Amino acid sequence: MKVEDFSARPALGVALKITAIFLFTCMSAIIKSTSDEIPPGEQVFFRSLFAIPIILIWLAQRGQLKVGLKAKNPMGHVWRGLFGTTAMGLTFAGLGLLPLPEVTAIGFATPIFTVLLAAVMLGERIRLLRISAVAVGLVGVLIILWPRFGGAQMDQMATLGAMLILGATLMRSLVQVHLRQLVQNEHTAAIVFYFSATATVLSLLTLPFGWVIPTGQTALLLISAGLVGGVAQILVTSSYRFGSVSMLAPYDYTSMLFAIVLGYVIFGELPTIMMLAGAALVICAGVLVIWREHQLGMDRSKVRAVSDPKS
């Protein structure tokens, strides 16, 4: 089967994508469960390091180990790693301060911010429909964030968490814009591998800022986060072999359902009506952006294949 053959097995593409989103949400829950003990930089290290063996096995199985280790644009990978590692670190820090569904909802703003950054950095033209989608999405973000910044029951730590997740969302948008250029010359396998490699190295820069020796149980959780994240990344990348971006991208939003269930079962968290209302607006805006880009013939499949919700 050719990589470009999107229509042959769409059901498999959907199954792979939904499974990947579920695993990414599980990974977030695992990271959140270790937040009281482990600093974000150390969490990023475990998440990135233990994804590498999974990725290498996958590349070897597909016969892409050679291309996966070949970087035509090394600095492009360094910048992708810097942006993605920053986004991951901010997300992990925010997970320790906010409910899992709220973190997930704010993260849905990534396509909205990506449209704005692409217009500024790449000169992409934004017409009425996408401008309207951006406006609706920003209103949704404001509704989600209002209790943290202007509500009657503001909590300083929760406000900090909201700022961290908002910063992570902006950084992920920057990753998306950067990848639109990187995928033009770099193989997907190389982008997937070198992100984990650079994130592992960059996370070590936080070593002087309070790393701890985890307990046995916590170490197992951190290792499992890396393994689960690695498998999820492979499933995301593989899903776009069987379905187009316009068909698969909306399934990203199933993460809200998974986050609500895991947040309640594991952490006893329940989303508020205001948060759900804001999330609904952001989701509608994101789907509209994806649909409009498909109408305009903008194929984002390669970018989506090497992007994950935590990078």
Results as ranks from 00 to 15, higher is better:
residue 8 A to L: 13
residue 14 V to Q: 03
residue 15 A to S: 11
residue 15 A to P: 03
residue 18 I to G: 02
residue 19 T to M: 11
residue 20 A to P: 06
residue 26 C to P: 00
residue 30 I to V: 08
residue 38 I to M: 11
residue 42 E to W: 07
residue 47 R to P: 05
residue 48 S to Q: 03
residue 50 F to H: 08
residue 50 F to R: 07
residue 51 A to N: 09
residue 55 I to Q: 09
residue 62 R to N: 06
residue 65 L to R: 11
residue 66 K to F: 10
residue 74 P to K: 05
residue 80 R to L: 06
residue 81 G to P: 02
residue 86 T to F: 06
residue 89 G to P: 04
residue 96 G to M: 09
residue 99 P to I: 08
residue 102 E to A: 12
residue 104 T to L: 11
residue 107 G to D: 09
residue 109 A to V: 11
residue 112 I to N: 09
residue 116 L to H: 00
residue 117 L to E: 00
residue 120 V to Q: 03
residue 122 L to P: 14
residue 123 G to F: 02
residue 123 G to T: 08
residue 143 I to W: 02
residue 143 I to E: 05
residue 145 L to K: 06
residue 148 R to E: 11
residue 149 F to G: 07
residue 149 F to I: 11
residue 151 G to I: 08
residue 151 G to W: 09
residue 151 G to M: 12
residue 154 M to G: 09
residue 155 D to Q: 15
residue 156 Q to G: 09
residue 158 A to P: 04
residue 161 G to F: 07
residue 165 I to L: 10
residue 166 L to V: 05
residue 167 G to V: 04
residue 171 M to D: 08
residue 172 R to Q: 15
residue 172 R to I: 13
residue 174 L to I: 06
residue 176 Q to T: 12
residue 179 L to G: 06
residue 183 V to R: 02
residue 186 E to N: 00
residue 187 H to F: 02
residue 191 I to T: 14
residue 191 I to E: 08
residue 192 V to G: 03
residue 201 V to T: 04
residue 205 L to Q: 13
residue 206 T to F: 13
residue 207 L to N: 06
residue 210 G to A: 08
residue 211 W to Q: 12
residue 213 I to A: 12
residue 215 T to Y: 05
residue 217 Q to Y: 13
residue 219 A to C: 10
residue 221 L to H: 07
residue 221 L to R: 14
residue 223 I to R: 05
residue 224 S to C: 11
residue 224 S to K: 05
residue 226 G to K: 13
residue 230 G to F: 03
residue 233 Q to N: 10
residue 234 I to G: 04
residue 236 V to I: 15
residue 245 V to G: 04
residue 245 V to A: 14
residue 246 S to H: 06
residue 255 S to V: 01
residue 256 M to Q: 12
residue 260 I to D: 14
residue 261 V to L: 10
residue 264 Y to F: 12
residue 266 I to M: 15
residue 266 I to V: 15
residue 267 F to W: 06
residue 274 M to Y: 03
residue 275 M to G: 15
residue 275 M to L: 13
residue 275 M to K: 10
residue 276 L to D: 01
residue 280 A to Y: 01
residue 289 V to L: 10
residue 289 V to Q: 04
residue 297 G to I: 02
residue 300 R to M: 12
residue 302 K to Q: 13
residue 305 A to R: 00
residue 308 D to C: 11
residue 310 K to V: 12
